[in-house]
Simulated assay, not measured.
Amino acid sequence: MNIYLPLERWTNSFVNDWLIPTWGGFFNRLSDGIEWVVEGITDFLIYLPPSLIMVIVAALAFWLVGKGFSLFALVGCLYIGAVELWPESMQTLAIIIVATFLSVLFGVPLGILSAKNDFMDKITRPVLDFMQTLPSFVYLIPAILLFGLGGVPAVISTFIFATPPSVRMTNLGIRQVPEDIAEASKAFGSTSWQMLLKVELPMSLQTIMAGVNQTIMLALSMAVIASMIGAPGLGSTVLSGISNVNVGLGLTGGLGIVVLAIIIDRITQGIGNKL
């Protein structure tokens, strides 16, 4: 049986003949807004004295995790500065901050809606499965086409790739709230909003924060991949090492990503535990 499905032609026709001509102006304005935010955060982080950021990170690590990890965070920051990758680290951090903010901004409300509505949950599950199983490189193609090269397509592709954990964990956390507590809240006359804000969200906060933590880790994992479309930061350092077969440069940038990932991971876990 010979079946031909012209999916490639249909997709290209949809993008080139309708999507870009119709929505090109919207994507340009969106790109300008995201670029302004990313550049603003990057300039601010680079403007701050590295010693000040080191002290803040070490203090947060001491308060949220402990003195042992505080020492590791300080040594990690010193390593990033010693190998002269501080500006690249701040560029990567700025992209992660913006992408994570967008993922949480969209993911948590969608997770709440999915937990409250079984029909919505049935719709979002296959979409999230698709987002998580589609190879991350595939996200780069429409990102380049709609937003060009640089930090903006990196933010968009990272946002799409990193959003599912936030949705899933929020949904899971709210659904795991004990039924007897929910019934007691209703018996005392709580409205739906009071139930959500005063019972369900506080009791599921640790699960939601675990989802945020996973979102940040996925965003960091896109650092090297996003560098292929011109994203600045540590990923571009690793990519340069790969392109030039420079093992030392690749290892230096890779260790920078590892240090950044461990520090952010433990600090966000500490925030979840504190809350």
Rank of each mutant, 00 (worst) to 15 (best):
N213P: 03
V259A: 01
P165T: 01
F161A: 11
F188W: 07
V212K: 03
A58S: 14
L197D: 03
F72H: 08
G33Q: 09
P49V: 04
A226I: 00
I229D: 06
V65M: 10
I208S: 01
V212T: 08
G250R: 00
F27Y: 13
M54I: 14
N28D: 15
A226E: 02
A73Q: 01
N244H: 13
L85T: 09
R266T: 00
L52F: 11
G211W: 02
T22M: 07
G40K: 05
P21V: 04
T100K: 00
I242Q: 01
P21D: 03
S243G: 08
V155E: 01
L260I: 03
I80Q: 06
I97A: 06
M120Y: 13
V247R: 06
G151Q: 12
Q214A: 12
K122S: 12
N12Y: 05
N28T: 15
A82V: 00
L30D: 05
A99G: 04
I80P: 10
F188N: 08
A58V: 10
L7I: 15
T11R: 10
V65N: 08
E179I: 13
L140H: 07
N171K: 12
V224K: 05
T237Y: 06
K186N: 10
L102W: 09
V38N: 04
Y47Q: 10
L45Y: 04
L140F: 12
I96S: 06
D118C: 00
F188Y: 09
L134M: 15
L71H: 08
E35K: 11
W23A: 14
M217V: 13
L30S: 07
I174V: 12
V108H: 02
A231N: 09
E179A: 10
Y139N: 09
Q176I: 00
